Amino acid sequence: MTTNLTKPMSKKLLFAIILVTIGAELLLYLARYSTMAITLYDALMVSSFFIGWRLYRRLGSPQDKPKTKRQLSLQFTGAFLIFVLGSTVINIYSTYTFQDFSDDYDQYVQDYVDIQAYDAGNEGPSAEPMGSFFEEVDLVGYDLFADTLAGLEEVWRLAYIVLFLVIFKKIFRRRWESGRTDIFLMAALFLTSILFGIDHTLDVEQPWSIKIGSIVSFANMGLLFGVILLWTRNLWVTVLVHALYDITATLSWYYVEYAVELFALAILVVHLILFTLEKMHQRRLKRQMEKVELIQAAE
């Protein structure tokens, strides 16, 4: 995989990778001072889709067999369930290990929901049904939009992994040429996870007791996303898992208290059904192959 990720690239692609990595860091930091920086960051995330389109093929190999729609669906459902389980463990760990961060985050969620509800209440009901509909959209819509864009942070991760590997290849050329490149991939995964945690603290000023908990908690989340990316070797599956998890978490703030858990339960049911169908398909193919071999042996 490392060889494929670091294969020659154009100067335009290298510039785009640097823009979506270093540029995102700068905009996130500036977001604490400027609302325009937030808008530019959103625009960068949207444009990163096209960079991801250029990079996602590097995760695979020419020898890989194309997956069927059912296999891709199984990959997504399995990845989502793994992330929900892992994030639950991380949340429990953070609650008991970083009490200040846990309390601050819970208070942030409560304050944010209260502010949104207060603003909606002050506006009052609209005289027109269409106006009332868009008031509701405005209340939650931007959060869902931001959650969708958050999935594209996995393009940021892949771009960073490629960038780190290119640097490692130049600096540690002898070790790279020896074929022991997995250690560089793991180092890139670890570094991007740390940066993922740090980036969740750049747009706000926090006491260090809260900031350390935030960095560690989100770095663990980032590591989990990174493992899913390398396991599935599918950028868009990881993007979808990230976006849907954030969306269901937001819905749990506003509408359904256990939206993440209920969605995960639905995904589990779908996963079991798809898994059963895939096993039945594999057995059918195996029996057909055995029949062909018997016919060939008889001839």
Rank of each mutant, 00 (worst) to 15 (best):
Q75W: 03
S193M: 11
V162F: 02
G151N: 07
F196R: 04
F184L: 12
I92Y: 03
L165M: 15
R54Y: 09
L191E: 05
L144A: 06
Y96T: 15
R175V: 13
R54T: 02
T88Q: 13
K170L: 10
E123G: 09
F190R: 00
Y118P: 01
D103K: 09
T148W: 07
L189F: 10
P62N: 10
W53R: 07
L189I: 12
T68D: 01
Y56E: 10
G60M: 04
Q110L: 11
G86T: 12
G78S: 11
E135T: 03
G86H: 05
L74P: 03
S61K: 11
S178D: 14
Y108I: 05
Y105C: 00
D104H: 13
L72D: 05
P66Y: 07
K65G: 01
D182W: 12
S87W: 07
A79E: 06
Q99I: 09
I92G: 02
P66S: 08
T148S: 14
F145M: 14
D104S: 15
D143A: 11
Y96H: 14
D182T: 06
V89E: 02
V155C: 07
Y56W: 10
Q110P: 04
I194R: 03
F145A: 11
T148K: 06
L55K: 01
S126M: 13
F168A: 11
L59F: 06
M130D: 02
G86C: 15
W53K: 09
Q71W: 03
S61I: 06
E128S: 10
Y56D: 05
Y112C: 01
D138V: 08
R175N: 08
R70M: 14
I82D: 07
I194F: 06
G60A: 08
L81Y: 02
F80N: 01
Q110C: 03
S102L: 01
L163R: 06
G141M: 12
T148Y: 09
V162G: 00
Y142D: 10
V155S: 05
S61T: 15
Y160K: 03
P125C: 00
R58I: 00
P125G: 08
T181K: 04
Y112F: 11
L139D: 06
D147W: 09
Y56P: 01
F98D: 02
R173V: 04
N122R: 13
D147F: 11
A79Q: 09
S193L: 04
Y93K: 01
